[in-house]
Simulated assay, not measured.
Amino acid sequence: MEMSLIEKNFENLDNLVELIEKEKEITYMDALVLGLEYIHTGELPTGISESSTDIIKELVQEVTFDELEKEQVRKVLEFAMLKSMKGSTQQQHLLTPDTVAMYIAYLAEKLIGEKKQLRMFDPTSGTANLLTAVFNQLNREGKVYGSEIDPTLIQLAVLSANLQKTEIEYFHQDSIQPLLLDPVDLVVADLPVGYYPDDIRASQFDVHVKNDHTYAHHLLIEQSVHYVKPGGYLLFVIPNSLFDSDQATKLHGYIQANVHVVGLLQLPTSIFRSDQQAKSIFVLQKKGEHTKPPKQALMAKLPSFKDSRATENIVAKMNEWFKNEGY
């Protein structure tokens, strides 16, 4: 029943976006921004022929976001965003799979426990699909923040938050630059992998390397730790090769000095195009006066999400680990 509601809304949204795309001769992604703006504000995009205007007006009536739960709205938008990114080679134009978001939300839930008010931040928020998926699942009151440099992605993120009726404050900027952000309880991020071109800014970080560009994902880890409260948690989607790189020594030293490694969960390779692109969830806690490292870090290789029995077994083992660690 739920799926058919989501599918019906996606179909109507998709038809609406395709019509705007064709009329204005723009990309599906740009047309999606205009379509969602129209749904949100009621302001029709300019430059649409009269005959198509009537069809668009009819289609927008069929997109019934007001009748859906937040998570259903997010899923409709996710389908549209996935379509807009089809064939994209840009790392920032790829969505974090829902199954990964579910594991991150599960881990965050265990770590933050009874905490009712939550400050949460994603420094690489993109369209905010991961951020809203986790926040929806945690179902807490709180302040949510995202940072994104790509102008189209941040437009989609703002519209997504508005249509889900979730208040999120966005920074339209490079997240490695200073942020006007008070410390948060929780950071979630699917880290983009690559070099950071601004060597002067990078030189202000502990993970900075001389005579080369520093890895942006290393800088983002340090920047995130800076904006987390002592005792706060960070959940990153990282490349499996994180500690095999030529710059790993600096990162390793920074991690040892500033955070406790809570766990490392290897994601199933079946969800990635190749073994080289495989990733893990890296769970950290910022050191504080009353923090201590786990007796034993949570290490697991997650099974294929299609194998429900193996998934149930691994979740039971993780529940046991959290219980033994006193969470």
Rank of each mutant, 00 (worst) to 15 (best):
132 T>S: 07
173 Q>T: 02
163 L>I: 06
159 L>S: 06
170 Y>P: 05
103 Y>D: 14
162 N>L: 12
153 L>R: 05
113 G>S: 11
179 L>M: 07
189 A>Y: 07
77 L>F: 01
148 E>K: 07
78 E>S: 14
180 L>W: 12
157 A>D: 09
166 T>E: 15
97 P>V: 03
76 V>P: 01
106 Y>K: 05
182 D>P: 09
74 R>Q: 00
137 Q>Y: 10
169 E>P: 14
191 L>Q: 00
114 E>W: 02
92 Q>I: 07
136 N>H: 13
158 V>R: 15
79 F>Y: 13
73 V>R: 11
94 L>D: 08
116 K>R: 14
144 V>I: 15
200 I>K: 12
160 S>V: 06
203 S>C: 07
131 L>S: 06
180 L>D: 15
74 R>F: 00
99 T>L: 11
91 Q>I: 09
178 P>L: 08
117 Q>R: 15
169 E>C: 08
173 Q>W: 00
122 D>M: 02
169 E>N: 15
148 E>D: 10
185 D>P: 13
141 E>Q: 14
115 K>P: 00
157 A>K: 07
111 L>V: 01
160 S>F: 10
158 V>S: 10
121 F>M: 01
119 R>V: 02
103 Y>M: 11
147 S>L: 03
90 Q>T: 10
180 L>E: 15
127 T>D: 02
183 P>W: 07
105 A>S: 06
157 A>F: 01
185 D>W: 15
153 L>N: 08
74 R>K: 12
68 L>H: 12
76 V>D: 03
138 L>G: 02
71 E>D: 12
134 V>S: 04
149 I>S: 08
170 Y>L: 04
112 I>H: 08
98 D>S: 13
199 D>E: 11
185 D>Q: 14
131 L>W: 03
116 K>Y: 03
77 L>H: 06
191 L>H: 06
91 Q>R: 13
174 D>E: 08
152 T>S: 03
110 K>F: 04
96 T>K: 06
119 R>W: 01
144 V>N: 05
77 L>K: 08
119 R>Y: 00
126 G>V: 04
177 Q>S: 15
191 L>V: 03
86 K>F: 10
172 H>Y: 12
189 A>H: 02
118 L>P: 04
198 D>V: 11
161 A>W: 01
87 G>Q: 09
161 A>G: 06
187 V>R: 10
73 V>M: 06
127 T>K: 06
202 A>W: 00
89 T>R: 04
105 A>R: 02
170 Y>W: 01
120 M>L: 08
76 V>T: 07
190 D>K: 10
117 Q>G: 07
